[in-house]
Design a protein around this nucleic acid. Structure first.
Length: 640
RNA sequence: GCCAGCGUAGCUCAGUGGUAGAGCACCCGAUUCGUAAUCGGGCGGUCGUCGGUUCAAUCCCGACCGCUGGCUCCA
């Protein structure tokens, strides 16, 4: 007999092979109707899979997150069922649940069109009405090979399963899939779904294998949830930095320079404000430097980039040799090493921090380019630190605090990750052991919680990544602290120690914003375009109510500008309502309205962004002081 | 780079095998207004580029460029 322990502590004795659905029914009929699946010792299985083990027994309903995965995985099968009915030639790949939905991969002669998706969706609705049960069967390898004789992708997967593994199939009506499960009891449970888009996807994620047609969809237990999700997608699109970048007149792209942003005056203001902030933070302990953009390949041969990353560099022809033996720099590190090598350094100078904002170019493949988030030309707040091994712990703490403080200014919460040696790397394992040990110890000493990212380190060393999540739910790697024992060897970096002999420093690579381009994109979406005052391209818009007051308004703008405030006059021949609306659409933090009353009292009627009902009339001087203070302190919220 | 979709006025988009339209923006005029779009008039496009089919191509076909969603990649 198996002993099942329910969440309330009660126990049930059942025979091995009992169906969970019967156990659930014995607990309550209402629960049986709501049940989607069960979890035995935390492992989710469906209601029709015989129980093998006793232990903690939990019934999953629509309220459990695990049940949502079951629902989505089943919806993927539902999709495949429909696709097979409409396009019997389709070979099936994998169809898992993913965040917010599911996908299913098919191999077909003719790729799917948007019209096909509509057909599939209609067919899915029919299958739902048919309430086809998901029937689990455990089969032998030979049986499975027969069932999937016409599905080469499934046969490939089958051949990888070990002999000790249970091979199970799930059948709903005409459709059989090689699948571990679990699934909902029948297709009638799958009511609220939507197919979203198709995409090509390499079989097994390998670009050398054939390309399959992937269909993405989403599925939910309740219609409200589905609607809310679709609404969320719409809202996310509205704050997409590419949409807002146009609407707020911040930047543009042109086909003559794909992947490189053109910054308008307003966008440049934001860009410069960010650079200015990093400069301010670095004034004390960093040395800002500038190095060339163009280098002979000799440099990249020393650094190791020529072999590994040449395809991703912009090569330039040397007119004397006719060779493509020169390149735009894709990173700053080697140039900083050259700068370091230009002098003899004492241990007294360390840690020595070279910081730069130079322009970098990487020849990203066309398909990878995307708005400001993936570009070919960009600017990092890059820094290379030369230090002794003894200084690593202190330095990592210093840098980590620096980075976290910077993000706090924007209200961004980072997740810290520790990334270890990748498969393709330079340097021997002893060196990696040392680097990973030192960096990990330093990270642990900061007391910050962190996650592991095994194999995700740079090819020259382990790193600490600071990732943030944007409004669209995408995770962005922003800041990074990378420890490098390799570069000092390759470039023969040295310093004179206390003992008057030469020593090898270690190098730390550090970036805070990642690239400013991408950081601006994240900020646009993070703030939905409503930048805090210190970043807002236009901080105050002054609106005279009538033409007669234009001169008074102009004088107020003058005073604000003299106080360092980015103020603009809007005396266009439009109604006040029109101009207010325009200011709101452009997300200007403050509008200062000047009517006859204000003109007489040297005041302005202040309207804070998004707070139309709460205007207040205050003296011009006081307003100037308030805005100036907000900008200076980089306040996140506008004052009430 | 790969798969699919898309490319029409500054922007958002409609449209048709017989050389194009709306709203907003912009310009002009009227209006002088108290907190999210005043009214009227006007300007504006070799329909991404090149080639093909056709009596005729923005529309059909092909190539290229770019963008979007994915896949791959991301020092």
């Amino acid at each position: 007999m198996l002993t099942l322990t329910l969440p309330d502590g009660a126990t049930r004795e059942v025979a091995p092979g009992t169906l969970p659905v019967d156990v659930v029914k014995s607990i309550g009929e209402g629960l049986a109707r709501a049940a989607i699946a069960v979890a035995v010792n935390g492992k989710v299985q469906d209601l029709m899979t015989p129980l093998r083990d006793g232990g903690d027994f939990r019934v999953l309903t629509a309220r459990d997150a695990e049940a949502l995965d079951v629902l989505r995985h089943s919806t993927a099968h539902l999709l495949a069922t429909a696709v097979r009915r409409v396009r019997p030639d389709a070979k099936i790949g994998f169809g898992p649940a993913i965040e917010d939905g599911f996908y299913y991969d098919f191999e077909v002669e003719r790729p799917f069109t948007p019209e096909d998706l509509e057909r599939f969706e209609q067919e899915m609705a029919k299958v739902v009405k048919e309430k086809l049960p998901f029937v689990r069967a455990e089969v032998s390898r030979r049986e499975a090979q027969q069932v999937f004789a016409d599905d080469p992708l499934k046969l490939e997967r089958l051949s990888e399963l070990g002999d000790d593994e249970v091979i199970s199939t799930y059948t709903d009506g005409p459709f059989v899939d090689l699948c571990r499960g679990p699934h909902v009891p029948d297709t009638g449970y799958l009511k609220h779904f939507k197919l979203l888009n198709t995409a090509g996807a390499y079989w097994r994620g390998d670009e050398k294998r054939q390309m399959l047609q992937r269909i993405y969809g989403t599925a939910w237990f309740k219609k409200e949830d589905l609607d809310a999700y679709l609404h969320r997608i719409e809202e996310a699109k509205k704050r997409d930095h590419r949409v807002l970048g146009k609407q707020l007149d911040l930047f543009m792209f042109h086909q003559f320079s794909p992947g490189s942003a053109f910054w308008t005056e307003r966008g440049t203001t934001i860009f410069n404000a960010l650079v200015g902030y990093v400069r301010e933070l670095q004034r004390e302990h960093f040395q800002e430097v500038r190095t060339p953009v163009l280098y002979n390949k000799g440099l990249w041969e020393i650094s190791g980039h020529w072999g590994k990353y040449r395809e991703n560099m912009f090569l330039v022809q040397n007119n004397e040799t006719g060779e493509l033996d020169t390149s735009l720099k894709p990173m700053n590190c080697p140039s900083h090493y050259l700068l370091y090598l230009s002098k003899k350094h004492s241990y007294r100078e360390l840690p020595l921090r070279f910081a730069t904002f130079d322009t970098l170019h990487r020849n990203e493949v066309t398909g990878a380019l995307s708005g400001l988030t993936r570009v070919r030309q960009f600017h990092q707040d890059d820094c290379h630190i030369f230090l002794t091994e003894d200084q690593i712990a202190d330095e990592v703490r210093f840098l980590a605090q620096f980075i976290v403080r910077y993000y706090e200014t924007f209200g961004l919460k980072p997740t810290v990750r520790f990334a270890t040696r990748p498969e393709v790397r330079i340097g021997d394992d002893a060196l990696w052991d040392r680097a990973e040990g030192a960096l990990r110890a330093a990270l642990e000493a900061t007391g910050m919680p962190f996650q592991m990212k095994p194999g995700d380190g740079a090819f020259y060393g382990p790193k600490i990544d600071f990732d943030v999540t944007d409004s669209l739910g995408r995770l962005w790697q922003l800041g990074t602290i990378q420890l490098d024992y390799n570069a000092p060897e390759r470039f023969d970096l040295q310093y004179v120690g206390e003992d008057n002999t030469m020593h090898r420093p270690v190098v730390i690579h550090r970036a805070v914003s990642g690239s400013f381009e991408r950081f601006v994109a994240i900020l646009i979406e993070h703030f939905a375009g409503a930048f805090p005052v210190w970043l807002a391209p236009e901080q105050v818009r002054v609106l005279p109510i009538t033409d007669e007051l234009a001169d008074v308004a102009r004088a107020v703008v003058r005073r604000m500008r003299d106080a360092g405030i980015r103020a603009h006059l809007d005396d266009r021949n439009e109604t006040l309502n029109y101009r207010i609306r325009d200011g709101e659409v452009m997300k200007v933090p403050y509008m200062a309205v000047i009517g006859k009353r204000e003109a007489e009292g040297d005041t302005v009627a202040v309207r804070a962004r998004g707070e139309g009902k709460k205007q207040e009339v205050i003296p011009v001087a006081q307003f100037i002081e308030r805005v100036g203070e907000e900008a200076k302190t980089r306040a996140l919220q506008t004052a009430d």
